[in-house]
Design a protein around this nucleic acid. Structure first.
Lengths: 205, 205
DNA sequence: GCATGAATCAATCATATGATTGATTCATGG
DNA sequence: CCATGAATCAATCATATGATTGATTCATGC
């Protein structure tokens, strides 16, 4: 590496490169195996140059977290709107998450790793929790809108329902078939349970 | 430590102590900060004694994984039974998981950590996936039984539904209020969506 | 040009870390 | 009691690792 003329870069650009390299290495080998030297090597800079841009390893992790969060936020659909059909908005939220899993799998994977790191890095916890709650709140609002519109059950409670759907879409990975094959079946199953118009005439007891 | 007369222990007992100490340290400081020396110190043995019982760090992780899995399996309710009421069985499954979160939080927390480690330890992945699929399969069976009994919607698809409910119960933690406050609301919300009859909140169990 | 500060690097420090070696202590069967 | 093997420990190895120091190179304004 460094086989061609190397121009000095501005701090912002270098930091972005460092964040991306660190994220890649976390995903490839896990946080436990993350070494500042390896990050520097991947960026193509000296270890001390890395420390010039990012004072400590913890600061580097924080940088990765911010970058990951911002990338994810950029993929979200428009904010929930009471004047638009709730079912479409709910699906749009799920679609956005689905697409992020399909097109930017590193974002969610990195977020999962950061979640574990956060167990011992309090400042990370705050950031991730704020982010997660904000994300879930979007579902809460869409569900409340849909209930008001009569699209969803009148007895649906938005908060637990939002936790249920975000939890389900987040966590089904290791328990089912590979990839995203079960994403929409899971979503459809949950949505079916939320809808107000159940036509089934199940036998009464 | 080691302030009183120390008797030699059998390999099985020592290995159990090592597994417990390693698990505790993983939960306290995260896997990235797990050191064989610290495990040995916690057990109260020399680092080389630890290596006598557990040849490598990777073997120690595998030991922790097995112990955690076995402890969790021991807390599960009876195997799904087509001749018993499905709703009670579903609730029993959830209750068992709830109780494990309440009484043995280290089990699930450790499992979550191991899940991350598994990203770079293939043999761990197999074990955890097998375990997770087996756990989810119990829900699949209960849901199928309930559908046959007419308790759950006729159009309910057991596999995605099981992924949804296990996912929801597994993952809601960071997005809602602390602790288990939202456990039953989330469960009830999902169950309500599964039921064939939207009426009543009859007798529970 | 050239002074200045930002960006970069080679070399090094101090400690951490997984693992090994060889001697020592204990429990147990005969 | 004592031979034997299991269990334990002190000391050490070889390398990894986060961070620092001080010198060097580049870009930019004047």
């Amino acid at each position: 590496m460094r086989d061609q003329k190397q121009f000095y870069l501005r701090k912002g650009q270098r930091r972005a490169m460092i964040a991306e390299a660190a994220q890649t290495l976390i995903l490839e080998r896990g946080y436990a195996a993350l070494r500042t030297r390896d990050v520097a090597a991947r960026v193509g800079i000296n270890i001390s140059t890395l420390h010039f841009h990012v004072p400590t390893k913890a600061a580097m992790i924080a940088l990765v977290a911010e970058a990951t969060r911002d990338s994810f936020l950029a993929l979200l659909p428009p904010t929930p709107d009471p004047s638009r059909p709730a079912r479409a908005q709910l699906r749009a939220e799920a679609q956005a998450y689905h697409d992020s899993l399909r097109d930017r799998p590193e974002l969610v994977a990195c977020h999962t790793q950061l979640r574990q790191i956060a167990a011992t890095e309090p400042e990370l916890t705050d950031m991730l929790d704020t982010f997660a709650q904000g994300w879930c709140q979007r579902y809460v609002e869409v569900l409340a809108i849909g209930r008001a519109q009569g699209v969803f059950r009148a007895d649906l409670v938005p908060q637990p329902a939002a936790l249920a759907i975000t939890g389900a879409l987040t966590a089904f990975g290791p328990r089912g078939p590979d990839g995203l094959a079960m994403f929409w079946p899971v979503f459809d199953e949950i949505e079916r349970g939320f809808l107000a118009t159940q036509i089934n005439e199940g036998e009464l007891r």
